[in-house]
Structures are given as C-alpha cells and as structure tokens.
Design a binder for these strands. Structure first.
Lengths: 337, 337
DNA sequence: GTGAAAGCGCTAACAA
DNA sequence: TTGTTAGCGCTTTCAC
C-alpha cells in the first residue's frame, strides 16, 4: 500500500500539500492539485484509517450491541442503524452479546480502546447498568434503543409501549371481548411492564377487573407462549380468556398454534394479537393483528442521536418515543376488506 | 483517556517497560510488573487501538458484506461470523449493500484504508466480480460465503447445493410424485443453478422428462412464489405439478398460502418443500419439509478460513462445501411420528 | 532487565 | 502558496 509520502514524491510536492488536497482545506494551485490527484489515481492510494484515527482521536465507527441478531426483531433495527451511519461516513461494529455480561464487557473495552466512538445498546439488561453507567461517567457517548434503563443518564429511543398496550387492549374491547389475557414478557422488563400498564389502563376504563391468571409472564418466545396458551385452552369455556395479547409476533404464533391444536377457532373462539409486525405476520395463512413496532426507525433514530452527540458539545439526555401502530388483520376479526 | 506515558510516569518506569508487561513479551521484574499493573488498574487504562493498528498495520477487524441483514437468511450467518471472530479477538464490521454496487465500492475503500483486514462476502453478485478480483489481485484476504463467483481466485464456503436439489427431488420421488416442479431463483444465480442441476439429475434417474413450465425462475420471495403457485393451481388437475420445491422457506410459505387460497390440500393435493430451515418452518401450523442450509456454520467457517488466511502466508484458494440436511416435516407427507 | 528513541501514516501549526 | 516538522500512542531495536 502506498502512503502519503509516496504520493508526495510521485507528484513532486510535500506531504502537507497532499494532505491539503486530500482534505480540501487549504488553497492549492490547480497544477499541483492535478498532479496530486493524478498520483493518487495512479498509485491507487487511500489514506490510512489508523493513522488518521490516531491523529484525530476518532475511529468514525459506532458500536451496535444486540443480544442476538438472529432474533427477528433486531435485523431491521440493525439495518436502520447501518443505513444512517453509512450516510454520515460511519461504519458499524456489530456486537452480539448473546446476553452474556462478558460480551458487554468486551464492548466496553472496545470503547476504551477507541475502536468505537459511541455505542448503541439495544435491549439493555438491568445487569448491564453498572457498566453502562461507568461508560457514561467517563463521558462516552451512549444511546439506549428499544429498552430503557431507569435512571441511566443516556439518550433513549423507544417505541410507545404504554400506548401499544393500551391500543391492543382497546381493540380487543372494541371487538366485544371482556376476558382479555395479556401474556407479558420476562418479569421486570420495562418494555413489558409499560405495555402491561397500557393494557391495565384500558381494562380499568372498561371497568374490568384483571385476575392474576390473565397476566402470566414468561418468555415471549414461541414455545413458552404455546404452553401458556395450552393452559388457557384447558380452562372451562366460560372462564377461559376469549382474547390473548402476546408481547411478540413469534409468541403470538405459538398462541395461534396452541389454539389450533386444541381445536379453538381464531378469531371465533379466541382472538389473538401480537407485537412487532414481523414479515411473517403478513403471510396470508397468518394474517396476524398486531402492534407494529418501528424497528428500522428505532435503529435509525438511535444512530441519528448518537451522531449528533458525537458532533456536539455535551447536552442533556434526550428521550424520543416513536409512535406504534395498530395493524388490523384477521386474528381478531374486524378485518377490512 | 490515559496513555502509556501516564502509566509509565505513574509506575515510575519507562514506556517500554509498560509495553512489555502489556504484551507480556519480555521479562520484567515482579516488582515493576506489579507497579505497572497497579497503575493500569488505577487509571483504567486501555491501549489505544488506532496507535496499535498503525504500528502493527492491522485493525483486527473483519468486514462482513451481506446484501440485506433483514433477509432472515443472513442473521444466523452473521452470528456465526461474529462468534468466531470474537473468539479470536477480532471485531466484525457489518456492511449491508442492499444490492447497490456503490455500497460494495465503499466496502472496498474500507479495505484499502486498512479499516478491515479481510472481507467475507456473502451472496456475491456477478456485478461485483471486477471489484472483488481487483481486491484479490492486491492480495487482500477475501472469502466468499454462500454464493460462488466462478473463476474468482478466493476462498469459498458454500453448502452442497447440488446435493440439496438432488435430495429434495429424490424425496418427492420417494413420496410417489412424478410431476415435480422446481421454482428456481433469479436466473443466473449459481446457487439456484446448482440446486436445479441436482433436481434434474434426480428426475433423469427416475426417467422423467422435465417440461419448461416445471422450472420457472423468479425471485425466491413470498409474493413471487405465491404467484407462481397460483399459476400451477390453475392448471388442469392432470397436468398440474403434484409437488413443488421452492428455493427458500419464505418462498415455500408463499406456495403454501397460494395452495390454501385455491383450496388445494397439502400434502394431499400438492406437496411442498423449501430450502433453508428457518425458524418458521418448525411452527406447528407450518411444519415445512425443507433442506436445511447450515447458515451459522457457513458464517463460522468462512470466518475461520479468513482468519487462517490472515495469519498464514499466501496459500491456494480453498473450497469448502458444507453438507445440507433433509428435514422431513409435514408438507410432503411421510412425517415421522 | 530496562530505557531511549525511531518510526508507523497522517494533520496542522508555523515558517518561509 | 507551499514546505518542514512535531506529535498523535504504541512497539521494538539497540544500547547500556
């Protein structure tokens, strides 16, 4: 690989001149400029990123932490992040933690080594709090995406989870249901809690008491949801919930499949809703009514915020809440033609 | 951030000594070593990656090019790549090209700038050939994953596509089908071509002629496949294929849904197979028979090859073919209890 | 055993 | 308008 010196020699100018034309930040006479440009072309030169980074004390790359990229929730988010970063000349480092705190620690190390200029943390866990806090205290740019961490002084981009729960439950109510179950996620997840609060609010407005068996928590995954639904299916028909809201579309698939396995018709015997609006929700054989979470936008906005923070002096932590949207398909009835 | 100088001063030693303990490559007296370690802890020091990279002329990061991370085929591959890289102290740069040649060009620029030490290219397109070739000619480490590019001098990791097509068709034959359609992917894709060759081989073995309407090509996506299936459904029952093999599980979903929309029972009226074995293939309401592509392993092996190439002197291009597996579920009948 | 210093490739302050 | 040079933080040769 050729260096700036090679270019300088080849063009018969000083390295400073080459640097000036490279960065276009000083006047350089047309002839010299042309010679430099020609040399660059001829030698197929590209300035070394490490050297630049060392001088400039920045890497122009941001880190994106996801717990598991093969969870279909994240790819869109990652894409939003990458598209936005890319637009501003930043690269993105993907870091899968697989929910191992050790991996989070390695990410923090990359931050201290200057490998990344800022970090987007999706689905932050309570266990990460201390580490993230210490990063923030050292002034490292950080934005949380999708999941909040109460009390952490960092930018946050999330979807309107309370509203999502509210709108899901209201929709069920509107369709005539009274016994509506809300399958929440792992206990303690703020996302899940917020959605459940929205649900409870709607139920309260409707004057309905929510017995504990309507809000079983557990994983929002397929199997765990499938099993919870089996439990409901086995209840006496006049006690069994006639509507089930699951925290994720994949979970809702489990609910749908359990209902089918027990001979329950959807939506006649049981109405089902999910959250996310994954591509599979739109399949004709599924047609899942769901609350769309703007995943791409979550990633895009988080990146936007991070980049702003990178270029501006310190400012207060911001909190952006993205609207969610009710997508009515077939699993609750009431579908538009 | 503290630098090696700060540590040296703080510990009362030279920067060289600090470097020695950091890299553990020279004898350092226990006392000094301890003092250095203490200073590192106290000042929360981490060596600057750019400076190291500049010296060492390596970034310890690899680039991973995918056309679209939100295509459910890629996340597992990306994860395999990331896990393997991570194990060897490498980071991974994700690059979504969205099939824009411009993005590929930017990736190449990153390579020339030394931002990445090597590149894994998934689903390489014919249009990328020249760029990739020029990278190889400059000796840049490159491995192709999933899709081959005939004649490109680079390592390649792919799944056994011919065998996959063969095993899919043979399975259909075994289930008693004779009119078996193979919905191939976009014309010219080597992956698709190989699979189709396997299919043709099986048909030939069975002494069956394959009329052109059985091998319609198109996108392997949901909608395109849905529509192709509608075409088959509208054929007279005694001409219509009784079995359909699609190039992807998502495509197979389209086939399944089209069949359902036309009142065709699966597998009685039409048997359906996919390729990939995505998570959705296992849903109880789907139970798609499919050819499993080892996506994670594709990413992992590609990374392994790349890392070997990074550490060893130049060697001949290698070609690894990963076995595929027939996963029998319900859409072709013959499911195990 | 340990340290001084050169140098990786680049930018920018300063000099001419 | 252009060039010389110091220095970013680190590793490593060479000398002691």
């Amino acid at each position: 690989m050729s260096t700036i010196k090679d270019i300088a020699k080849h063009a018969g100018v000083s390295v400073a001149t080459v640097s000036y034309v490279l960065n276009n930040n000083r006047y350089v006479s047309p002839e010299k400029k042309e010679r430099v440009l020609a040399a660059i072309r001829e030698l197929n030169y590209a300035p070394n990123a490490a050297a630049r980074g060392l001088r400039a004390r920045e890497s122009r790359t941001i880190g994106l932490i996801v717990s598991d990229i093969s969870n279909p929730f994240y790819p869109d988010l990652a894409k939003g992040c990458e598209d936005e970063a890319q637009k501003h000349g930043y690269a993105v480092h993907m870091i899968n933690t697989n929910d191992q705190p050790e991996r989070m620690r390695q990410a923090a190390a990359q931050a201290r080594e200057g490998k990344i200029d800022g970090l987007i943390v999706t689905s932050a866990l309570e266990a990460d709090r201390e580490l993230l806090q210490s990063l923030r205290e050292r002034g490292f740019p950080l934005v949380l995406a999708h999941r909040r961490l109460e009390g952490l002084d960092a930018d946050l981009v999330e979807s309107d989870n309370f509203e999502g729960g509210l709108m899901a439950a209201r929709h069920m109510l509107r369709m005539g249901h009274r016994r509506i179950a809300f399958m929440s996620g792992v206990a303690g997840s703020p996302t899940s809690k917020l959605r459940e609060e929205g649900y409870r609010q709607a139920m309260k407005e409707a004057g309905i008491d929510v017995p504990p068996e309507w809000t079983l928590s557990g994983e929002a995954k397929y199997t765990a949801s499938y099993e919870r639904m089996l439990g409901y299916a086995d209840m006496p028909p006049d006690e069994r919930p006639t509507a089930v809201i699951n925290m994720s579309d994949v979970g809702a698939m489990g609910v749908l499949d359990a209902a089918a396995d027990r001979g329950l018709r959807v939506p006649e015997d049981v109405a089902v809703m999910g959250f996310d609006d994954l591509f599979l929700a739109a399949f004709r054989s599924v047609r899942l009514t769901t609350v769309r979470i703007p995943r791409y936008e979550l990633g895009r906005r988080a990146t936007e915020l991070l980049l702003e923070r990178l270029s501006e002096a310190s400012r207060d932590a911001r909190h952006v809440v993205l609207p969610v949207e009710l997508i009515v398909r077939g699993t609750c009835g009431g579908e538009q033609a």
